[in-house]
């Protein structure tokens, strides 16, 4: 895991340095490089992410929690992270309107994913009240 962190740090520092150099002469290529670095960092961290997911699966199995409950919460968290990265990239490209659009879409998707939980709760409350 330490190696992975060093790898991520190396990619980030090198990426930022190259992007800063290129950005002045060719901003479009600089943006493409930023995007590439972001994707590379995300891919580098994917192994760790898979480990977290495996831990969560094991946790759900051991505690007897319903997967139907955990999966929507997990998906919402992922949507929020992807939304954040995408919106930041858009802001780097000075596309604030697109960034806002991404954030709005992320919020709608985040809520959409937990709709089954909401409908369960609503059904339960309806039955109780």
């Amino acid at each position: 895991m330490d190696d992975l962190l060093l790898k991520i740090a190396g990619i980030a520092v090198a990426g930022v340095a190259v992007t800063a150099l290129v950005k002045k002469s060719a901003p479009e290529i600089g943006l493409a490089l930023s995007l590439f670095v972001a994707i590379a960092l995300f891919a580098a961290g994917f192994d760790a992410f898979r480990n977290v997911q495996a831990f969560l699966d094991a946790f759900v199995g051991q505690t007897g929690m319903a997967r139907d409950v955990v999966v929507p919460v997990w998906k919402t968290c992922l949507i929020a992270i992807v939304t954040k990265i995408t919106a930041d990239l858009c802001r780097d490209a000075k596309e604030n309107a697109v960034a806002s659009g991404v954030e709005t879409a992320g919020a709608i998707l985040g809520l959409y994913v937990v709709l089954p939980l909401f409908s369960n709760l609503f059904e339960l409350m309806n039955r109780l009240l």
Binding site: M65, A66, D68, V69, V70, P72, V73, T76, C77, L78, A80, I81, T83, K84, A87, E103, G106, A107, G110, L111, V113, V114, L117, F118, N120, L121, L124
Partner: peptide, 26 residues
């Protein structure tokens, strides 16, 4: 997730958490 996405409006994470806990306990 909330700390990773600091600065962006992510109230829906909180809503997801509440709904998850409600589904677990209610």
């Amino acid at each position: 997730a909330g700390s990773l996405t600091e600065g962006t409006p992510t109230r829906y994470i909180q809503i997801a958490g509440v709904l998850g806990i409600a589904a677990l306990t209610l």
